[in-house]
Simulated assay, not measured.
Amino acid sequence: MNKIFLVEDDPVISKAVVNHLTMWGYEIKAAVDFGRVLEEFLAFDPQLVLLDIGLPHYNGYHWCEEIRRRSKVPVVFLSSASDNMNIITAMNLGGDDFIAKPFDLSVLTAKVQAVLRRAYSFQNSINFIEHGGVMLNLSDASLTFQDRKLDLTKNDFKILQILMENAGHVVSRSDIMTRLWESDSFIDDNTLTVNMTRLRKKLEEAGMRDFVVTKKGLGYLIP
C-alpha cells in the first residue's frame, strides 16, 4: 500500500483528502504538529508528500527544502496561491507537481497516481482511467464519481472501459460487442441495447446523466 503524507492546514480539506485517498487504497497520514513536520515525515516514511504552502510556523517551501535535504520522495504542492511565481518557486525547490485550490478530488487522485507512476515502478499500483471527474478503477471494476463508488457488472465495466479509452471518439456497436463477447457473430443486437440501457440507468442514478451519448447509426460516445 502506497503511503502519503499530507501537510494541510485547512481541516475541512484535510479530512476530505484523507477520506478520498483512503477509499482509493492509499495509507494516508495528515500532519498533526505543524512545527514538527519533518519529524512526522521521517517517522511515517511515505512514498509521496502533499504539501500546502500557507502553514503555521513555517511555510511549505521551508518544509520542502527540509525534506529535500533528506529524501527524494515526490512532493506535490497544494495551494490557492497558484500564480506563476509561486508555481515556479515550488518547482525550483524540488516540487514534482502543483495543484491549485480549489481542486476536484478525482483530479487530485489522478495526479497522485501519475506522480507515483513516474517516481516508482509499483507493480501493485491502482490503475484507472479518468474522464470528466469520473474514475474507472481497472483493479476492482468500480466507478467513482463525486466520492460515490459504484460496483459494476462485468459488462458494465467492459463497456465503460472501451468508451473511456476512446473518449471523444465514437465506438461502433460491433466493436463493443466484440469486446463484450469476443465476437460480433451470433449475438442478438438487442442484447447490447439492454446492457446499455441498464448501464445508463445506473449512471443517471449516480448523477452522471448523458455521460454516454448515442450517435444514431454509428455507435456510442463519451464526449
Rank of each mutant, 00 (worst) to 15 (best):
M1A: 10
N2A: 13
N2S: 14
K3M: 07
K3S: 11
K3H: 10
I4Y: 07
V7K: 10
D9L: 05
D9N: 15
D10P: 01
D10E: 13
P11H: 05
P11R: 06
I13D: 12
I13W: 10
I13M: 12
I13R: 09
K15L: 13
A16Q: 11
A16V: 04
V18N: 15
N19P: 00
H20G: 11
H20L: 10
T22H: 15
G25S: 03
G25R: 01
E27G: 09
E27V: 07
K29I: 02
A30K: 05
A30L: 05
A31D: 12
A31W: 05
V32K: 14
G35C: 08
L38S: 10
E39C: 02
F41E: 06
F41N: 08
L42Q: 15
F44K: 04
D45F: 01
D45T: 09
P46A: 07
P46E: 10
L48T: 11
V49K: 08
L50A: 08
L51R: 09
G54E: 10
N59P: 07
G60C: 03
W63I: 11
R70I: 14
R70S: 09
K72A: 07
V73L: 06
P74Q: 10
V75K: 05
V75N: 04
S79M: 11
D83C: 05
N84W: 06
N86L: 02
I87Y: 04
I87A: 05
I88W: 00
T89S: 06
N92Q: 13
L93K: 11
L93E: 03
G94V: 01
P102N: 14
F103D: 11
D104S: 15
D104M: 11
D104V: 14
T109K: 15
A110N: 12
Q113W: 02
A114W: 00
V115A: 11
V115G: 02
A119I: 00
S121N: 15
F122R: 12
F122C: 06
N124S: 09
S125A: 13
N127M: 08
F128P: 00
F128K: 12
F128T: 03
H131W: 11
G133A: 05
G133T: 07
V134G: 04
M135T: 15
L136P: 06
L138T: 12
S139Y: 03
D140G: 02
D140R: 02
S142D: 06
T144C: 10
T144M: 08
T144H: 02
T144L: 06
T144N: 11
Q146L: 12
Q146W: 00
D147R: 14
R148S: 06
L150Y: 08
D151A: 13
L152Y: 07
L152G: 08
T153A: 07
D156H: 05
L163N: 03
E165A: 14
A167G: 03
A167S: 14
G168P: 12
S172K: 10
S172C: 05
I176W: 03
T178E: 13
D184P: 03
S185I: 06
D188A: 05
N190Y: 01
N190R: 03
N190C: 00
N195T: 02
R198V: 00
L199V: 02
K201R: 13
K202N: 09
K202R: 14
L203H: 13
E204C: 12
E204V: 14
E204P: 03
A206Y: 01
F211Y: 15
V212H: 06
V212A: 04
V213I: 15
L221I: 12
P223C: 03
P223W: 01
